[in-house]
Design a protein around this nucleic acid. Structure first.
Lengths: 194, 194
DNA sequence: GTGCAAAGTTTCTCACTGTGCATGTACGTT
DNA sequence: AACGTACATGCACAGTGAGAAACTTTGCAC
């Protein structure tokens, strides 16, 4: 299935992944501030300059896994039955995603904890979410919206739920599944309030 | 009323403001990427080293006005009658704020347009919002929440409305007042949806 | 296979940034 | 007036991001 794409692209993807993993590992081991781009590049066996060809900075390198996850989520959103509302599609995609992926991977937990400790990571992560909003708009185009809430608004609210759910789950992992935490927030958000 | 605070603090505030204004002006004139910290420092008659004593980077310097605005909003939230729900307090504070301030100032519009053009500014701005959430939690402590939606969630949703409303207003200023745009989004958010 | 163009990597370079440190200066307090 | 403290400055230095040029690998046509 991926034999259609050439060796070139495959290698690039591998390198990018390797750089990401090196960045994440080093950041967890030493703390992000004590990791230089050069150290990451060394660990991934590339030059410092090449690092810049792949990522805009160490923050982006660390968060690349998140980006992948979210792209996967967007893909699943687009695959949701078109008669569903935007909200239903988003929640459905989220459920599918966590159902298929099983429990969240170690790396993802590590990234979340890093984000909690390093404001610069939070900044990049939120910027990434903002960029994602337009892509999600595409995936939600042409769906019914019986309640009259615009897709743009729905999407932003949905991402808020992901963020709060994640933060909450990282802070108190005993309380429930990640999906449960997110669902809990999502339920609140869909409810009317004053 | 501010004669109680010393000359020292007043000077500091003036310098910070001057640096901010210089940063904003230069960023608007040349584009953020073509403005060095040194140029900002020169324009504000301070040394490059001193710039770093005031701000963590040019982005923060440009966005300082936003920070002030939001602090003012938080202050007004805390002053809302305590029998109001968190949501009512937030909306009330917003209304008061824009009622008193009159139409939004030029600088604010310029900053919003800059944020639209420069992702690094968006990142910092969103990180600032995230930092603000805890302060708003304080200002909303102990209020009734009849609908069972947690303050944390309310706050995040509220900030989403500010962001979307602002973006929308910057993109199409003819459609209505900034406050109207925000209210429009806020109305949608308080409504139930599926 | 051979050869060639395109894409990717590396090395070198340079302007810019952030911060620790030592020193000088202005403020506030007594 | 005098002293301690907070702040500003200049300097040094490690780290960063990006352009340019040389070199290597990949994709493709023959």
């Amino acid at each position: 299935m991926d034999s259609t794409i050439g060796l070139r692209e495959r290698k690039k993807a591998e390198t990018r992944q390797a750089v990401h993993e090196a960045a994440l590992r080093l950041a967890v081991e030493r703390g992000l501030d004590n990791v230089t781009v050069e150290a990451i590049a060394d660990a991934a066996n590339i030059s410092r300059r090449t690092f810049s060809n792949y990522f805009d900075g160490k923050e982006d390198a660390v968060l690349y896994g998140d980006e992948q996850r979210l792209r996967e989520l967007v893909r699943r959103v687009a695959e949701q039955p078109p008669e569903r509302t935007a909200w239903q599609a988003l929640r459905g995609a989220l459920r599918d995603f966590y159902h298929d992926s099983g429990s969240p991977d170690r790396d993802w937990v590590q990234r979340s904890k890093l984000v909690k400790r390093h404001p610069s990571l939070l900044a990049r992560q939120l910027a990434g979410h903002a960029r994602l909003e337009s892509e999600l708009s595409q995936a939600l185009a042409g769906r019914p919206q019986p309640h009259g809430v615009e897709p743009r608004v729905i999407i932003a609210v949905f991402l808020v739920a992901l963020r709060i759910g994640t933060q909450r789950w990282v802070n108190e992992p005993e309380t429930g599944t990640l999906l449960e935490m997110m669902d809990q927030v999502l339920d609140q958000l869909a409810r009317p309030f004053e």
